[in-house]
Write a protein that binds this DNA or RNA. Structure first.
Length: 501
RNA sequence: GAGCCGCUAGCUCAGUCGGUAGAGCAUCUGCCUUUUAAGCAGGUGGCCCCGGGUUCGAGUCCCGGGCGGCUCACCA
């Protein structure tokens, strides 16, 4: 909409009575020469520090010391007594009460009377304890630092409308402390992982998000266009092929924590952009990564929860290692009445899959059919952390073949609550084999599999320069955070999840 | 993409059988100088998501659409 089409700011439709009343207070203060948005107030203390230092201090101790503080924060509650008021200030997630009395600081009181819930203010004064023993600042000076024009969500119920919480996440974070906690935990989780890998000699890198050929996973990409280059580019679906180029380059251990983009469905488990950790270690195998994964994640769970046991949506999960291991084949045999010959005979696999009610296109590869069967009969059964190993060759075009059974690869997926948390394999570093795998993928692409991997000549060329034997792994950070914060939806661990409009 | 559910005041929610649209909090006015969802009295505030239809009359019934949630499908 053009500016001219809009009614003036003050009278714009949809503005609440509160909004207008606050604008009037702004005007009244402007008339008195009070700046509603000054930037020269420097708080010397934080609410958290004051609580930590004096939260336990006795009344006599406070009075003897005469502790003066200056803090800033958002007014979250006002209890007004006419000529004195208690206000709750929220500062960086911590709260501290302040007491504003007319006779102590008449000027301050005059400004305060034109402040509202949600305004950000700065106060100075001495600490004391109220009758009910609450640590409180007796306000000597009071300044408005930023006027809020909208009322806060209701103080008791908070903001519960899910859509409003996602669209106006700042309000959600402001008034729902448990939401703030989720994102603080997310930060701690990512930091732990960074520190863990860094301490093992991994270097953190950033590789392209805009890629000419989207590779490293099977997924539908977002397409975009670069004007100056005059070419189509894709938002990455995985960083894998670039990280392996770095292993070729001589960085023996690299990792990246960053966004991937997949143009697919949205659900409680899927957001179009999501955060992935990928790490690659030269001279390691997928077996080494099993050990590393157990150590990293069980350590992480202990770090975040103080124990390796967590409760996720009513289910007890035990992360103390070692975790269960089972091959795709054994998992199918264990949880279905499949006969062993479905693994050697494509037609039998298809017949069995159809018997399960799976609709699989005729062109599908044998291995893909087996994975469909696995996902249907076995995957949901793995609640406790479990490594699923030895995936079919043709669903793993970037993995190294198993030395004993050439129909499977040296790969594992980590399942928790029946959901994939990690995916790792010994990397394919034979450029001839890699080219053949890509060619096989292109054939499947031609047969109608839009997610089959594309040929990436530049990547093969890098392998042709020699990549050391390497193992690599990807861990979905959002899903890991969901587990560790007991979140049912991925949107609860993403600050601004994808929404329409 | 399909099925189910939701959308009413700034927020949280009622709204019966189709008959003048409600409460609590917030806000405004008055009283109140130790409150803890402070209290008391009084007031303001509505595109009932949007568009059609049925009806004397629609927040309510019917049809279509929008946005969101959950489940399923796809995917990590």
């Amino acid at each position: 909409m053009e500016k001219e089409d809009r009614p003036p700011f003050e009278t714009r439709e949809g503005r609440s009575a509160e909004f207008k009343s606050r604008l009037e207070k702004l005007a009244s203060m402007a008339a008195d020469g009070i700046d509603a948005y000054p930037n020269d107030f420097k708080p010397l203390h934080s609410a958290a520090d004051i609580n930590a230092e004096y939260g336990m201090a006795a009344v006599q101790e406070l009075e003897a010391k005469g502790v003066s503080v200056s803090i800033a924060g958002r007014i979250m509650a006002i209890r007004d007594f006419g000529k004195a008021s208690f206000i709750q200030l929220q500062d960086n997630g911590a709260r501290l009460q302040a007491y504003v009395k007319k006779d102590i600081a008449p000027g301050a009181y005059d400004v305060f009377k034109r402040c509202d819930m949600g305004d950000i203010v700065g106060v100075t004064g001495r600490l004391f304890r109220t009758k009910t023993n609450e640590l409180t600042v007796e306000v000597q000076t009071f300044r408005l630092l930023a006027k809020g024009l909208h009322p806060l969500p209701e103080k008791w119920h908070g903001l519960t409308d899910v859509e409003a919480r996602y669209r106006q996440r700042y309000l959600d974070l402001m008034v729902n402390p448990e939401v703030r906690d989720v994102f603080l935990k997310r930060c701690a989780i990512v930091k732990y992982i960074r520190d863990f890998l860094s301490s093992r000699g991994y270097i953190e890198v950033e590789t392209p998000m805009l890629q000419p050929i989207p590779g490293g996973a099977a997924a539908k990409p977002f397409k975009t266009f670069h004007n100056a280059l005059g070419c189509e580019l894709y938002m990455r679906i995985a960083p894998e092929l670039y990280l392996k180029r770095l292993i070729v380059s001589g960085f023996n251990r690299v990792f990246e924590i960053n966004r991937n983009f997949r143009n697919e469905g949205i659900s409680t488990q899927h957001n179009p952009e999501f955060t992935m950790l990928e790490f690659y270690e030269a001279y390691a195998t997928y077996e080494d990564l099993i050990a590393l994964t157990e150590e990293m994640i069980s350590g992480l769970v202990r770090h975040i929860h103080g124990s390796t046991k967590i409760n996720y949506q009513g289910t007890e999960l035990e992360f103390a290692s070692p975790w269960q291991r089972i091959s795709v084949k054994d998992a199918i045999l264990k949880y279905s009445n499949a006969s062993e010959d479905i693994f050697g005979d494509r037609d039998k696999a298809f017949a069995f899959a159809k018997g399960l009610g799976l609709s699989i296109p005729d062109g599908l590869s044998h291995g893909k059919a087996l994975i469909e069967i696995f996902e249907k009969v076995s995957e949901p059964r793995f609640i406790q952390p479990t490594f699923i190993t030895h995936f079919p060759l043709d669903v793993s075009p970037l993995s190294r073949k198993n030395a004993v059974d050439q129909s499977v690869v040296d790969r594992f997926e980590l399942l928790v609550m029946g959901k994939e948390i990690a995916n790792a394999f010994s990397e394919l570093n034979d450029p001839v084999d890699q080219r053949e795998r890509f060619e096989a993928q292109m054939k499947e692409r031609g047969a109608g599999d839009a997610e089959a991997h594309q040929m990436d000549e530049e990547f093969v060329r890098a392998l042709e320069h020699g990549m050391p034997p390497t193992a690599g792994e990807g861990i979905g950070i959002d899903r890991l955070v969901m587990l560790l914060t007991n979140s049912a939806s991925i949107r609860d661990v993403i600050l601004f999840p994808a929404l329409k409009r």
